[in-house]
Every structure is written in C-alpha cells, then in structure tokens.
Design a binder for these strands. Sequence first.
DNA 1: TAGCACACGTGAGGC
DNA 2: TGCCTCACGTGTGCT
Lengths: 212, 212
Amino acid sequence: MVSLRQLEQGMQQVRSYYKSESYTMRNSFPQVRSSSDAYRNSFSKPRSKAEVKLLAAKKHSESEKRRRMRINSQYATLRAILPNLVKMDKASVLEETIRQVMALKKNVSELEAVSRGSTDEIVFPGESDKLNLEHCIDDQGLMKATLSCEDRPGLMSALARALRSVKGKVVRAEMVTVGGRTKSVLWVQGLGCGNEGMGMLKRALKVVIHRP
Amino acid sequence: MVSLRQLEQGMQQVRSYYKSESYTMRNSFPQVRSSSDAYRNSFSKPRSKAEVKLLAAKKHSESEKRRRMRINSQYATLRAILPNLVKMDKASVLEETIRQVMALKKNVSELEAVSRGSTDEIVFPGESDKLNLEHCIDDQGLMKATLSCEDRPGLMSALARALRSVKGKVVRAEMVTVGGRTKSVLWVQGLGCGNEGMGMLKRALKVVIHRP
DNA sequence: TAGCACACGTGAGGC
DNA sequence: TGCCTCACGTGTGCT
C-alpha cells in the first residue's frame, strides 16, 4: 500500500506533467503543423483531449474567481455602509445586515404610521367638546388622545398638569386652533397597555376640557 | 503513466483505507492494551502520523462545512425578508440587500427629518411676530415656512388665501396656539427651487401676519 | 454543447 | 499548539 503523502505528491506530479510542454508535445494528435509558438497561437485549435480539458479547467477556475470577486465586492460595500460593525467576517456581516434591515423596516413602518396619522387625520376643531382615546396598534403602552374644546389662556399648562398627574409622557402632539376653538391629538406613553391607564387619562383630560 | 482520474479514484480508495478499521488495527503502535472498543474510545491516542493528519483533515472539512452552513442560512434569511427578489443567487441577493439598505436608510432619515421637525422643533409661539422661510434640503421645490403672530378669527382662511395666491400647496402643517398667539410651520410645495417663489411666498405671508 | 452557480476539501495565514 | 477565516481549484448539476 502506498502512503497518502506519496500519492498526493504523485498527483501533483501527474498534474504538472499534464500541464507540461513535454506531455502536450508527445500526446498531440499528429497533424501537419509547425511547432512554433506563433503558429500555435494563431490557430489555437484543434488540440489534444488533455489540452482541451486543461483549457476548460483554466476557464472554469477563472470564471469562478470572477464570481468570488463579485460576491466579495458586495461584502466590501456592506462592510462600508453598515454602522456598528465590530466583527468583519462574512457571517457577522450578513448577521448584522439582517438585523439592520429588520430594524430599518420596523423604523420606517412606525414613522410612516405616525406621519400618516398626523398628516391625513388632523382636521379642524369641532364645534362641540370632544374626547377620544385609543391604543395604538403594535405599540405597547402608546395611546392616542384626540380632544376638541374651547381655547383659553392656560389650556396648555392645564393639559401638561393633567398628563403629569397620571404620569403620562407626550411623545408627539399636534394642535390646531381656529376661531377660538382648539383640537389636539396627543400620543401618550407610560400608562401601560391596560385599560386602567386609559381610564385615568380620560378622567384627567375630561377635567381639563370642561373646566374653564 | 497513470491517468488523472485513475489516480483520484486511487486516492479515494486510499482515504477509505486509512479511515477503515483494518488500517487502524494494523498500524497502531504496539502497546499493552485491550483491543476492545471501550478501551480504544477512552484512550483514543496515540495514533500514527498519517492517521492524525487524516483526522485533522476531517475535522477541518467538517468545521468548514459548518461555516458554510452558517453563512448560507444567513443568505436564506435574507432571501426571505427581502421583497422584490427576482434572482436568488448569492451575488444578486447581496446586491439587492445593499440597494434596500440604502433605500431604507434614506427613507428613515427623511421621515425622521419631518418627524423631528414637528416633534422637537415646534415650540411655543414667540411674543413678537416672526417669519422665516427655508428650502428643504434634498427635496426640490419643498420649502418650510415658520411664522408666529397674533391669533385671530379668519387667520386660517387668510393663510389659505395667501398660499393660493402664490399657487403653493401645503403638504404638511403644524400649528400651536397658546394665550392668543399662534405659531405655524408649513411645508409648501409647487413654488420651484429658485428664490423667486420664496420671495413671493414671503411677501404673501408677511401681509397675513401684519394685517389684523 | 457551453455557461453558470453552488458545495466541497484543502492549504495558507492570523490570533 | 489548535481553531478560525478565507481563497482557491475542482466536481457536479441545471439550463
């Protein structure tokens, strides 16, 4: 039995032999042609079987190299445009990419929801006092309060006091005042997802609206 | 000369032989030990050089396989979360990923700019009348008008009339009124990128502010 | 048939 | 030393 090492070295030798000039010369099909390089370059075909095979292998490995380069250049781009990249190896780059894509997607949909809600929905204040509360879907603890009432000096601070009293934090507010009446939409956070927080907020805001 | 294919097949056979029980049995260093499996599992070393090498190679190829699987599973995830994927090969997936990441980033920063502008920037109306116009960066034809003035019945329609007179379209508006004074931020489109449109809008709004 | 995309095993080099 | 990552050339299957 031959050893593995010997066999591998043997293979290398065989490979080299197949690539070598002597093999090519010896095994080419006998044809009427010059052996000069010039001739062989201008009429590069036909060739011997082994030669064809080698050429194909070379082509193959080159195209594979191009493919690798294509992919790797994309990795380079990703490494460049991704912030907070600590580990630079391929798996980590892909992992971070996935995280960022998902985070960005979430961000966009959230911002769009808020933006859409405030741009389209806000209209003029109604003639009668109104108060409406609702939970924002998909966002635990965030609720939206819509209220219309008479405008008056001190309304702002009364609102602020009411919110403080129930420990609500206004993360976004839209207000429009026309002809002495005002409509506000407040996005309030910090009251939990349940109905107790909503009830507290409702009572507090009712006081603000109806107490001149 | 043997052929390449024959040699490779030979190598496979040799590899199998090295992995086989018969080889292990025959080539172990002569030691005083049982030949039972239990013994050989608890004291699995020492081994011959070739055996060690083969074991290392196997370990290597297996860990490499794990690495490939890690990376490929990330590709699978990307393929799953990316919309509009037509070509599914690795290079295309990466390319699409890059496009989407950049698009999402742009989206987020745009939305954040609008959102931030309305959430953080809007403060209480000042005590003196003010008017400020600016072009929105990266958004041709969109300009932002900030104004503070006395609130009064009819201010709203006066504003609307002024905007109509310069053919400006309000794509977004934020207003807050406190204690009889009002502050508005209007995003106006349709006046072009130049300074003529801005001048027209400025004159029109000035009239609204200073005419009680 | 050629071309492309992929998985594989292996050698090299970095901690 | 061992483990990890990468690039490489090659075999294979699909179109």
